[in-house]
Design a protein around this nucleic acid. Structure first.
Length: 300
DNA sequence: CTCCAGGGAGCCT
DNA sequence: AGGCTCCATGGA
């Protein structure tokens, strides 16, 4: 077991670990006190998050000194990639429009980053996300990991990796339904088979222009345009996707009424033109802000 | 009780 | 292509 710290001074721009990990972009981390998505800031040992990176357990928390980690090998470079601790991300955030919703969101959560998480876990996570609350998506992803993923140690603690495609594909639909996946169970099975058998993989998507990549991604079962946008934004590093979920659609009605188009593609294009040079970053900020707006405007 | 959640597939015109 | 209906489950 090694420990280390990424000093705050070595992270470009402001960074907020809690906002980044608890904003519904990734469901692959768990907090030690098990109380994610609540309107409170964890302190001390409660602030440790854990996940598996490249087959090794990693624990991480933010303190005044920076990002403290515990792992068997130094995860600093992987963390920079996965958590957006890059100059490019800092530049994109600084370029967010200061007016309107993005301005409010940036003021409220200046350290929020867009993540870049592994492809298959992100794909399955957002297949599960259909008609499901953020807290429950996280619970189901963790259940799948505990049941079908490999266990790894971080000292005395245990953390489970998200299942490999073949291992998830081997689980019966009935069993997945028992876990609470509902009608999404056959989607997960079919998509896991496609990835495991190489029918459609991340390499078939990378490198394509954004809208082409989105159409290709909808080739998975249970993946429509919205889920495809989430996968491209939170896993494959595309800067343009603006996933049109219920929150963003209501924000369009409230703040950008002229943006609403006939279909997903045209609405998406029109909204992108309003959100500045990094639409995906802006959308991520707006989504997180909308979900916490009440608590911000009426603090207890 | 009803309504809603980071929607999508299947079917119909 | 575009519109409609149904789909599981849990929390408010």
């Amino acid at each position: 077991m090694e420990t280390g710290t990424i000093p705050t001074a070595e992270v470009p721009g402001p960074f907020d670990l809690q906002a980044t990990l608890e904003s519904g972009q990734t469901f692959l981390w768990t907090r030690r006190d098990g109380r994610m998505y609540e309107a409170t800031v964890p302190t001390g040992d409660n602030a440790w998050y854990r996940t598996v990176i490249d087959g090794a357990g990693v624990a991480l928390r933010q303190s005044d000194a920076g990002l403290e980690w515990r792992a068997t090998t130094d995860p600093t470079e992987e963390l920079r990639e996965r958590l957006g601790l890059t100059d490019e991300m800092a530049t994109a955030i600084a370029a967010l429009p200061d007016d309107g919703l993005t301005g409010m969101a940036k003021a409220a959560f200046p350290g929020l980053r867009v993540v870049n998480e592994p492809f298959f876990p992100t794909l399955v996570s957002f297949i599960l996300s259909a008609q499901m609350r953020v807290e429950r998506i996280h619970a189901l992803v963790q259940t799948l990991s505990e049941r079908y993923g490999t266990a790894h140690r971080i000292g005395e603690e245990v953390v489970h990796a998200f299942p490999e495609p073949a291992d998830l594909a081997a689980v019966s639909e009935a069993e997945l339904r028992e876990l609470g996946l509902g009608y999404r169970a056959p989607y997960v099975t079919a998509t896991a088979e496609m990835v495991a058998e190489g029918v459609l993989t991340a390499n078939d998507i990378r490198g394509r222009d954004y809208e082409d990549a989105r159409e290709t991604t909808t080739g998975y079962v249970g993946v429509g345009e919205k889920v495809a946008d989430c996968v491209l934004l939170f896993s494959l590093g595309y800067p343009d996707p603006v996933p049109l979920d219920t929150w963003i659609r209501s924000a369009i009605d409230e703040h950008y009424p002229d943006v609403r188009g006939d279909d997903y593609a045209s609405t998406s294009r029109a909204l992108r033109d309003r959100l500045g040079p990094y639409p995906g970053v802006a959308q991520t900020y707006v989504f997180h802000y909308l979900r916490h707006r009440d608590a911000i405007e009426a603090p207890v």
